[in-house]
Design a protein around this nucleic acid. Structure first.
Lengths: 221, 221
DNA sequence: TATCTGTAAAGTGTCGACAGTTTTAAAACC
DNA sequence: GGTTTTAAAACTGTCGACACTTTACAGATA
């Protein structure tokens, strides 16, 4: 994924063990290595990551604020369970942030951006599994948020992204996708979005994004 | 402020020293006790709060994720400086979240909600300082986000609230408000918003909120 | 006076320890 | 067999310690 916007101007993160553990633990959670609801005991994790409890604690606090784990009143940590209600909340929050981002992205949209998104959508049409399509989908949405140029939008969006991914991995677990066919509607929505972005019509881009994301809730209770 | 929605269903926070320090330190930052850019050394804070460094570190990590402090690459912590560009970002992100929240708030809007907001706006007309008006303003917006019923919207919004407050306190510092008169436009916008919320027209409420917040950027570069 | 330099002070990252609490599991009891 | 009691194991919250790094400052130099 050679994205023309791969590195926006963000502060260099601290380079310590806690950060390493944070990133690794997050990856393990969103990839389903730790099932939802499972306990995360500090001494166990400390051994797992060959370190002491201090960096583990720091990582857990960061993950809690990302919405991936929860602390019980007793201080015990568990992988957060993301249910149907949570999914609705995530999608609504995403719709809010991303529709704003799409509107702002027009400020500094370039040819290279159009090219990147076009290529991404092309790959979507060729995708052969839900996991592959999802990865492309997330990349695309991440890209648009980045293009907004608003770092806070991106920082607020990221936790939603991880929660969304953690939820997806649960879906994969249940669903057999032997005969997977990419949803036409999703791809159509992405094309419509790209059109609005490329043509420089902010309100249209914003609305396209809003409808596209909220469409996921069409059958929700 | 006896709000009918004062306590939504949120998890009980951990009851430990780190949480206490987090809340107290946050209050001291947004009230201007620690000026923007000032250094926050762990041993100094530990003495200030009569505790060891461990709870201080936890609190600082939480504050960093709230956007109130920043870590330098060396690990040193400073109170974050919020400039004009940051203010724009905050307002854009607020507009995104709060306009969505206003649209959702119609789902479960009650008479009591109308009453609360009406009273709040009334007090705004009588406010005699920028600080007082701001407090009412923040209360009102917080209330609407709460009414959305979407806990994630609230959790994403809160960091923006603290950054917004931290920025306001800098404004107070510079501005003499001897002859303060509440801005008519703000109050008019709030009344318009209330109308849309009370009448149950989500898209109108959403739009009113969006315009109201982005109006603050009218003279921004 | 202004700039460089080396040393002392202060700060961060990580660790192990310990008290107090919660959970687990075994033992006792009905 | 099923429930209560009790003891052991595990976990969290907090602390102080230490190595290493960065900063501050006094003194030397020009």
């Amino acid at each position: 994924m050679a994205s023309p916007r791969s590195q926006p101007l963000r502060r260099a993160p601290r380079n310590n063990r806690a950060t390493t553990v944070h990133l690794r633990l997050r990856k393990e959670i969103v990839s389903g290595h730790f099932p939802q609801g499972s306990a995360l005991a500090e001494p166990v994790l400390a051994e797992h990551f060959h370190t002491s409890r201090a960096p583990i604690r720091e990582a857990l606090i960061a993950l809690e604020r990302e919405g991936l784990v929860t602390f019980e009143k007793t201080g015990r940590t568990r992988v957060r369970t993301i249910g149907a209600k949570d999914f609705r909340e995530i999608m609504e929050a995403r719709a809010a942030l991303e529709s704003m981002a799409a509107g702002l992205a027009n400020r500094n949209w370039t040819e290279a951006d159009t090219e990147f998104v076009t290529k991404n959508i092309e790959e979507q049409t060729k995708s052969r599994s839900l996991a592959e399509l999802s990865r492309l989908d997330i990349d695309l949405h991440h890209y648009v948020v980045t293009c907004s140029g608003n770092l806070r939008l991106l920082q607020l969006w990221e936790p939603l992204r991880w929660q969304w991914e953690a939820h997806l991995v649960e879906i994969y677990r249940r669903q057999k996708n032997d005969d997977f066919i990419p949803e036409k509607e999703t791809i159509k929505a992405h094309k419509h979005l790209l059109e609005a972005l490329a043509n420089g019509t902010p309100s249209e881009a914003s609305e396209a994004m809003m409808n596209h994301i909220l469409f996921n809730l069409r059958w929700a209770k």
